[in-house]
Design a protein around this nucleic acid. Sequence first.
DNA 1: CCACTTTGGCAACAGTGTTGCCGAAGTGCA
DNA 2: TGCACTTCGGCAACACTGTTGCCAAAGTGG
Lengths: 412, 412
Amino acid sequence: MNRGSGSGNRGSGNSGHRDAYGRRGGVNLPALRGHNEALVLDLLRAAGPAGLGRTELAARTGLTPQAVSKITARLGADGLVAEAGRAASTGGKPRTLLRLVPDVRHAVGVHLDRDEILAVRVDLAGRVVAESGGPLDFGAGPEAAVEAVVRAVARVRDPSGPPLLGVGVAAPGPLDHRVGVMGRVTGFPSWKDFPLRGVLEGRLGLPVLLDKDTNAGAAAAAGAWLRATWPDADAGAGAGGVAGVDADAFAGSDAEVAEVYAGGGARTCVYLHIGTGLGAGLWLGGGVYRGARSAAGEFGHQVLLLDGPRCRCGARGCVEALCLDAVARGDLPEAARIVGEAAANLVALLDVDRVLLGGRVVAAAPDVFVAGVGAVLAARALDPARPVVALAGAGVAQGAAEMALTPLFGHG
Amino acid sequence: MNRGSGSGNRGSGNSGHRDAYGRRGGVNLPALRGHNEALVLDLLRAAGPAGLGRTELAARTGLTPQAVSKITARLGADGLVAEAGRAASTGGKPRTLLRLVPDVRHAVGVHLDRDEILAVRVDLAGRVVAESGGPLDFGAGPEAAVEAVVRAVARVRDPSGPPLLGVGVAAPGPLDHRVGVMGRVTGFPSWKDFPLRGVLEGRLGLPVLLDKDTNAGAAAAAGAWLRATWPDADAGAGAGGVAGVDADAFAGSDAEVAEVYAGGGARTCVYLHIGTGLGAGLWLGGGVYRGARSAAGEFGHQVLLLDGPRCRCGARGCVEALCLDAVARGDLPEAARIVGEAAANLVALLDVDRVLLGGRVVAAAPDVFVAGVGAVLAARALDPARPVVALAGAGVAQGAAEMALTPLFGHG
DNA sequence: CCACTTTGGCAACAGTGTTGCCGAAGTGCA
DNA sequence: TGCACTTCGGCAACACTGTTGCCAAAGTGG
């Protein structure tokens, strides 16, 4: 069972899941095994340090108890799973609790923004173990950025630490997630067609995943409940602490979560980015939804005011035009209300659980946006308790790391 | 291999797919086998009567040629697959083409509308083989409707025909697809909590699937390419012909379809229903997207005119209010333009390939709506060639039947 | 006519989850 | 304290999956 070298059996080969384009692949025995292992790991991760009994795992996965025993034995041999005491008896032999061991593998997430770069290293629970940021001139072109990424990854990397599963890189779109090639980023023509993923894989010697920053934000949003179930990593993460997604914001609904929750990807989340433009990342049905051409999430040019002022995209009354205009006027509450109405549209259309806000404009006045968007959502939602709005801080890099964990936990 | 009795091995048990709530189940050997068989059947269905070689099936599924041989041998023994001649040689032994035999299983779809009922029987290619419609008073309550469904199914059923896989029932929402129970249908309080699926299963002795009419419409939209690859069923389908989804509308883009297409569920489709209200059915990533609480597709109350006229839902400027107001004024082009703008929002957000229009209001002036919506989409789309707008005729019942074929072809 | 390519089946195989069985470890009642 | 009962969980045999290695069949092209 030599699987300690970082890139093990898991995740290689087709997994039987749908890919982002709706196509599905055939499944063979190794893929089946990987799928079921990922399922068990995902449930254990969601259960937190308290762990879960084999019987419960069997009930939740639909596998037989014997199969779960075999699977957990394999995972135990790999060091990924350990015993965590015994649960109270329910009339017979008490079940042995199993828990995920978060420290045996790590992953790195990099947020490549227009003027800064942030890299984080996370453990299997998604907790930030190390981080390092710095300025970046995105316009200086791909080669300089590659160097910056390599340096940033080197700073958070720990040669004596656990093996790294991979590196997730979140960059401004558009880009092609399948092949890892950048698209025509507005204002940065030198990036067009740059094969960022391939180049980085060559430089880093690790599997690299490239996706839009908004999608990484959505992944971070989806992982927020997860991080609420694990206590903070005690390892220091640099000065000032980590301004990640606020886990406490979700801690209140634990009971409800436990009822519905069946792994890290069970909920529907949306990440809304407000910066130089508006974008959305969609986490639907347990994974990032990218659409057939990686073009999903076009949020900024949703028309919200029929025949309104003309937007730079040519249409009239786009959210982006309305919102940024309000921002320019200094009327942040109005900007928040506008985004809120558009968000409420999206929530109604897709039956969304959680909305996360991020981006420069939001960061400048977080309370105004959280309150403003939340008010509109509460007014228009059928169930006033849903959806919860919260703030995404350094979440994008965390989400990128989360995506790098995909081979182990299966969704994405 | 006794599997001729209609409800065979396939489809029972968990399949390893994500369910509508993003949860995934464990996979065992029978499920794996069912998955791969469904995959092969789906590809063969998409290939049409021309068929596909084993080598090509292997390449597309990612399975080994030997596995494909075993699988197709099983399917052949069941009568689901037959040989269809030989392809031209590519330098060696010419490949034997295999094709789906559409007539060995049928399925029934029922559209339960507010004042009429339509039942269709389809073959495995989704072609309507028989249909029967009639008036219905939805307000007369569930019991009367059950009788109407039973009668309608009896009329399209053929005791001497191939076994029926199941019955799909499309009804006005809201309803809970998982348990098959009706919700609070506006204006029809007697339907609340009626377990329509269970009652019908008892009466019909067949597996029954209950879903919203809009979702069935989306399934019909997704199946439109499919039907374009199969010639019309020669069996007569009653007087006047069948006003199904217009397959020809999609026939033009066959080359593109062949390139991207990998089975019946590979595309992203949206069905927009304009009747007493506005609703949407979403076909995303190879299956109907229902959201965590079966509430996805709330299209009518997308706000399109910020601070516009108040809607009956309490919000201001909803598409539904604007559109139905324009209809009431007799200004159908304006109604179409309004729907078009909302549809364009949706297309941009979800990277949609095809939009289908249906419902009473559309049926009254189909050309106006297809042209009006199409114009807005063309103006706002990045690629003017996409998406295609077309009309859904009797498509909802066809879509319901399509959903009943799910156990065999895997997606949904 | 022959070398080569491609197709596709047969047999042996590795590895999955399942079944049947049994011991271990608790609870709860007499 | 003792005993029946419940529940947990591992061992061994099993059924069945797709895979590998091998080879015959059926074409092409010089």
